[in-house]
C-alpha cells in the first residue's frame, strides 16, 4: 500500500498552499481582520477537535470551556517560570487527564449522562479554581505578560490547526477510526466484533480534550489578565457545538463551513446588538435541528448527489434519443 495515493497527494498539496496563503495575512493587516481571523482559526481548531470525538459518537460534549480554561490557567500559572512550549504540553496533559476522568465516569453509560456531566463541568472547574485561589493565593486574577502579538497567536493557532487536521486524517485511516465508524453505526455490533467501545471513546475524548486545552493555552497571552469567569466562559462550549453542527460533522473539514459564517455573524451581532446574542445562539440551535440536521456539509452533498443523478439522466437521454 502506498503512503498517499494520487488524490490524497493533490489534496495535501492544495491544503499546504491554502495554509501558506492564509499564513500571510498578518503581513497585510494587523487590525480588525487579523483579530477576527484569530477568532476564526481558534474556532476552527476547537470545532475540529470537538468533531474528532463528537462526530462519530454523536455524543454532544459541552466540556470545551473546561478544557479551554484549564489550558489558559496552565499558562497563567506557569508563564513566569516555565518556557511557553513546555506549558503547551502541560496544558495538553492536564486537559487530557480531565477528559480521561470524565470519560471513564460517563462514557460507559448512555449519551445522556455524558451530556449532563459535561454541561456543568466548566462551572465545576471554575468553582474549584476560584476556591483554590481565594484560599491559597492572594489575588483572584493572574497577569500573563508575554512578547506575543496577535500575529504570533495567529500563527501558532494555524500550526495547531494543521496538526489537528493531520491527526484527524491519521485517525480516520487507523483501526481506532474504523472502530469509531462501527460504533457510530451500531454499538452492539461493535462490541461483538471485539471492539472495547468504552476504551475507544475515552481515547478519542482525551485526544479531543488535549487539543482544546492547547487552544486555551495559546489564547492565554491574548487575555493578559486571567480570571476564572473569563477563562471558563460556558458560551464557548455552546458556540463550538453550534458551529461544528452547522458545518457538518461527517467530514473532518465540515466544521469549517460553520465556523467562518457564524464567527463573522456573531462578531457583527455582538458589536451592533449586544443584547441579542442569546437570540442568535437560540435561533442557530433551532436552525440546526429543524433546517440543517446534517449541517451545510449535508446540504452540499445532497446538491452534489442531485447533480450527479441529473448528469446520469441526461447522459442516458443523450444515448437514447
Amino acid at each position: 500500500m502506498t503512503w498517499l495515493n494520487e488524490k490524497e497527494r493533490r489534496i495535501a498539496g492544495f491544503a499546504a498552499i491554502a495554509f501558506g496563503v492564509v499564513a500571510l495575512l498578518p503581513l497585510v493587516d494587523q487590525g480588525y481582520y487579523l483579530s477576527i481571523s484569530v477568532n476564526i482559526v481558534m474556532y476552527v481548531v476547537l470545532c475540529t477537535a470537538w468533531t474528532l470525538f463528537s462526530g462519530p459518537t454523536h455524543y454532544i460534549s459541552l466540556a470545551t470551556a473546561a478544557f479551554f480554561g484549564i489550558g489558559t490557567y496552565t499558562v497563567a500559572l506557569g508563564i513566569d517560570t516555565v518556557p511557553f512550549p513546555l506549558l503547551l504540553v502541560i496544558a495538553a496533559l492536564a486537559s487530557g487527564l480531565l477528559a480521561c476522568v470524565v470519560g471513564i465516569a460517563t462514557l460507559r453509560l448512555s449519551g445522556i449522562y455524558f451530556v449532563i456531566f459535561t454541561l456543568g463541568l466548566a462551572e465545576l472547574v471554575r468553582q474549584v479554581v476560584t476556591w483554590l485561589q481565594t484560599n491559597f493565593s492572594s489575588s483572584l486574577g493572574l497577569y500573563v505578560f508575554t512578547d506575543f502579538g496577535e500575529q504570533h497567536i495567529y500563527w501558532m493557532l494555524l500550526g495547531l490547526a494543521a496538526i489537528v487536521y493531520i491527526t484527524g486524517w491519521l485517525i480516520n485511516r487507523s483501526r481506532l477510526g474504523f472502530a469509531m465508524q462501527i460504533i457510530g453505526n451500531d454499538e452492539t455490533v461493535a462490541k461483538h466484533v471485539g471492539i472495547d467501545t468504552a476504551r475507544a471513546k475515552v481515547i478519542l475524548f482525551i485526544i479531543s480534550g488535549a487539543f482544546i486545552g492547547i487552544v486555551g493555552a495559546i489564547l492565554a497571552p491574548r487575555f493578559s489578565y486571567v480570571q476564572p469567569p473569563s477563562a471558563f466562559n460556558p458560551m464557548i462550549s455552546f458556540q463550538v457545538v453550534i458551529m461544528a453542527l452547522l458545518g457538518g460533522t461527517k467530514r473532518i473539514w465540515g466544521p469549517l463551513l460553520g465556523v467562518i459564517p457564524f464567527t463573522i455573524l456573531f462578531d457583527q451581532v455582538t458589536a451592533y446588538f449586544p443584547n441579542h446574542t442569546s437570540f442568535v445562539i437560540g435561533i442557530a440551535f433551532m436552525a440546526i435541528v429543524y433546517l440543517l440536521p446534517q449541517g451545510v456539509l449535508g446540504r452540499l452533498e445532497d446538491l452534489v448527489r442531485l447533480r450527479k443523478r441529473f448528469r446520469m439522466v441526461s447522459a442516458e437521454e443523450g444515448n437514447n434519443p
Binding site: 465508524q181 455490533v189 461493535a190 461483538h192 466484533v193 471485539g194
Partner: peptide, 22 residues
Amino acid sequence: AHKIARLGIARTFQLVRILPSL
C-alpha cells in the same frame, strides 16, 4: 462482549444488524 469476541466467538443477530453507512 468484546473480550469474548476476541477469544474467538462470533455471532449473528436475530434481527439482522448491518452497519448501514459502510
